[in-house]
Every structure is written in C-alpha cells, then in structure tokens.
Simulated assay, not measured.
Amino acid sequence: MSTVLRTLIVDDEPLALKLLASKLEKIPQITVIGQCKNGREAAQAIMEHEPDLVFLDIQMPGVSGLEVVKRTQEAIMPLVVFITAYEEYALEAFEANAVDYILKPLDNERLARAVARALDLHQAKEAVDSSNKANILQAIEHIDKSKNKKVTWSARDTLDADSAENAATLKKLVIKDRDEIHLIKHSDIAWIDAAGDYICVHANGQTYIKRSTLKEVLDELDDNVFKRIHRSTIVNLKAIEKVIPHTKGEFFLVMDGEHKIKVSRNYKDVIRSFLT
C-alpha cells in the first residue's frame, strides 16, 4: 500500500491557496485535510490535526510561516515545504537543512519533486522517530545571522558586565534574538520545547529561539514549577489553563488561551499529580 501524506496548505492569498489545492489534488500521494489563510489558523490546525506535511507560505501578515514553525511543539511537528514569492530568505540554508522551498509561481515539476522528497523524509522520520524542527530552526537562525544587524538590549532592567550572574539572580532567561537580547522572566515562560540543540521559549504570547538543550535550561528553572511533559517539552505548571484528556492515556494542556500541548503517556503522572 502506497504512502499517502495528510497535508495542510497555508497561504494568505485566496487565489494562491486555490491553485495549490488544485495542483495537489492531482498527486495521488497527497490528501489535503485542511486549508488555512493565515499563520494563526495554521498553528491551530497543526495542533488539532497533526498533519504529515504542510505547504506553508512564509510571508503572511501577523503570524509568518517561520513563526508557525516556532510555535509548533516538536512532538507534533510535520514536514514543511515553504512557499514564497521572494528569494531573500537564504534559499541555500533551507535546502541544506532538509526543508524544501518553492518559489511562486508554482511549477508542476518543482511541486512534484517537493512531494517526492517529502515522501522520502516521511519514511525516514517514521524510521528514526524524530522531526525536522531542529533543521528548520537551524535554517531560521542562519537567516537571522545573515542580516548582520547590530545587537541592542531589549529589557527594562539594565545589566552590567557580569550579565549572566545578574540574570540568574533576577531569575531571567537571556535570549539573543536577531537584533535584540531579551530578558525573559521565568514566571512569564508558559512552555518550552526543544529540537536538537535549540529550544523555543514561549512567553507573553511570543516565541524566542535559543541555542541550548532542554537539560541546560531545566538546570536554570525551578523544578517545582517547571515539569517535563514530553521528552522534548517542559511546561510552567502555573501557566496551565485547561487539561483535556486524550486517547491512550495522553493529555492536552491548553496554554495562553490557544496553544495545545501534548502530554505523552510516559509523563502523564506529572499532570495527574498536579491535578490532585
């Protein structure tokens, strides 16, 4: 039986969305399970439907395609094919990191190659039980560094030369993001998920990338408040707004009013203990 990829397509241009859907309908290895017109819808649909593959427009108002990736938990991260009308996003960085990239207008042959590559990556993903989020985050970091912007400080508190020590005292996480360095209060962090040598820190409705492992950041946080609920995810127990039972002993946690985070069976006792 041939593999069929459950596919989500995302584009803020209605005509582009319609054209992509019509082209994918002709490819037997693809079944389109949903269409989204913005990044917020896409992030929600990925959480709810856990597609195998997403065709994702990069340039969208509000939540961009890159932001959708950062918001998506590594545990449910699908394969991603980026689509854009612009060549300014360090194309070679995405290709080098196993993320396909198609320029508009869509070309049938290029689209077919992207699907073939996605099929190969999907089979490899199942074999090793890992996602490609780490590769995408590496590509995003490459893009940020390529901008060569001057680093500035973005924080209410001023740090002196001994910034790391002060940050620890103030219980803040230091994150360099593009042209700013953010100081994130531990109490403001809702959840963190990891992919390889990167973490995505979700705080105050924003997502920040930091080069770090989950273990390293756990050493900085209060283990009475921050708990691992998946091998790649930790949450702030105080930020949980709702717990939704799922199949096979799993749970979903609702964070920040909109984000659903999956709790794996191996860590279900953490949530049960929290509830009691």
Rank of each mutant, 00 (worst) to 15 (best):
S273M: 08
I240R: 02
E241S: 04
G62M: 09
K149N: 07
R6S: 12
T276L: 06
V115D: 00
L79A: 03
S187W: 12
K145T: 09
A127K: 09
D57Y: 01
H230A: 05
H122F: 04
R228N: 05
L53A: 08
F252C: 14
D177M: 14
A93L: 04
Y267Q: 08
T7K: 01
K238D: 11
V68N: 06
R228K: 11
S130K: 13
E74S: 11
W153H: 11
S163G: 15
K150S: 13
K238P: 13
K70I: 14
L183Y: 11
I192A: 00
R272A: 02
A127M: 12
H259L: 09
E48A: 14
D144M: 11
M255T: 10
I33H: 08
K26M: 14
I46C: 03
N97D: 13
P245N: 01
D193R: 03
V235P: 00
S64D: 13
H230D: 00
R228W: 02
A167R: 13
K171Y: 03
A139M: 05
N132Y: 14
E165F: 12
A155K: 00
K210D: 04
R272I: 03
S187M: 14
V68W: 13
V151Q: 13
D222L: 04
N108V: 14
V225L: 01
I261M: 06
E48I: 15
H230K: 10
T84V: 06
L20K: 02
V174D: 05
A42L: 04
K37C: 12
K227V: 03
I181N: 13
A112T: 15
H259T: 07
K70F: 04
H122V: 01
T213E: 11
A96N: 15
F274D: 00
F226Y: 07
M1Y: 03
P245G: 03
D223H: 05
L221Q: 05
K145A: 06
N38S: 06
K37N: 15
D269K: 12
A112G: 02
